[in-house]
Nucleic acid binder design. Structure first.
Lengths: 219, 219
DNA sequence: AATTATTTTTAGACAAACCTAAATTATTTT
DNA sequence: AAAATAATTTAGGTTTGTCTAAAAATAATT
């Protein structure tokens, strides 16, 4: 399965959009890719014929199993390159995104694996986002994206999205550190806040902003 | 001046061809790029309109000043990436070419300079070919490409194209080492052999194969 | 439930880079 | 110097990914 750069960009955009929203609409995609809805429709037909997405006209898109696999490999490459640029080439963490957008389309499988080994298998990119492993497994996710909250999911905090004093201050106040285990109780759609409980203590509220900055894994 | 990947590949091919041959023909280019002569003609018109080449219908092509500058930047990127792949990622020197063909089209100027610094400004790639510096200067060239042999050019050996025992054996026999200065006397078009003289000693013959493996600089 | 507004798809076109087949120019041979 | 051969260009078409404008389907409003 060999994809063009453009096809890869569509797959990647669908992947990111369907993490926060559920089904992805034509207009969302057009906005995300900076193109017109008509162009998106064309591409959706093409990706459907390649079995990368599940798409019914007027009903939005989701990635197929194969599409998700491809997306994870692109995300893996993007984040590994970002890590390389910051850790080895001394780029600032805020100036690597655009370059990584180009590097992520280099196709060599061997290159990715060798790069991963050279970097000593990093788990998070410079923005704190988790790097999928070579099988496409991404153990960690944003607390915010735990949308399918089966009642009382147990998760563990693994990383935070930045090292800003403001974030650390808030975490300290809420008594949350890396390794803290918590039970996710409810998500409120009005403000996207989440209620969690740590060690059966009374429930506390996590704002949308905070839930987006916390990377957790299911336990 | 922003070039597409395809335009860059044409520029690069013209650069390499005009190093050994003089004026580059449509058919040579078509063979080199694995495309048809008619397609080449189309692209030559496009590159002419961008002032990257000097081209008269039926008369072949040469790079313009700007075209040569672009070509040297592409070659620089290609060879820096090859060096990176071999020295940092443990690729074999014989398996890096294809990956570098992709990496050389990444456009970020900053990336190239940071990569160059990270690699500590290497002068030769894993095949022994010289890496142009950030101004596009390439001090070294293959002895073979010293075509415009002004009578009695003086050059100094700077690098050899491989470390094979066979090559080293021959160099020892001819009494040539890195740093040896020699006067280039003549080039014979029948077999592309070159006659040189070391320290006013009698002339010796360098075969085409050997002249392709010796990197020299003018002195 | 009917109308209006929004979203999405279809239809038809365009630029880039390629193709084949035919015409033109250059080169070689006689 | 004319004829034959080879190289190159032109003419007209294809595919990929894009576009605009118009049609169709869905969603929202009255």
């Amino acid at each position: 399965m060999n994809l063009t750069k453009t096809e890869e960009n569509y797959i990647k955009a669908i992947f990111h959009l369907q993490q926060s929203e559920g089904n992805v609409t034509t207009n969302q995609l057009a906005a995300s890719i900076l193109t017109k809805p008509a162009s998106v429709t064309d591409m959706l037909k093409k990706l459907t014929s390649k079995n990368l997405i599940d798409y019914e006209p007027y009903q939005g898109v989701r990635l197929s199993k194969e599409g998700k696999k491809q997306a994870l490999m692109i995300v893996r490459k993007h984040r590994l390159w970002e890590y390389f640029l910051v850790e080895k080439l001394q780029f600032g963490w805020d100036e690597v995104h655009e370059v990584a957008e180009e590097l992520e389309h280099i196709s060599s499988k061997k290159l990715v694996e060798k790069l991963d080994a050279f970097l000593e298998h990093p788990k998070f990119d410079p923005h704190g986002d988790p790097i999928p492993d070579s099988n496409g497994n991404m153990v960690y996710m944003r607390l915010y994206n735990l949308k399918d909250v089966k009642p009382h999911v147990l998760v563990e905090l693994c990383n935070v999205g930045s090292q800003s004093a403001e974030l650390l201050d808030l975490l300290k106040h809420k008594n949350i550190v890396i390794g803290t285990r918590m039970e996710v109780l409810r998500k409120f759609s009005f403000d996207n806040s989440v209620e969690i409980s740590i060690k059966n203590k009374p429930a506390i509220t996590i704002s949308q902003q905070l839930s987006e900055a916390l990377f957790v894994k299911l336990i």
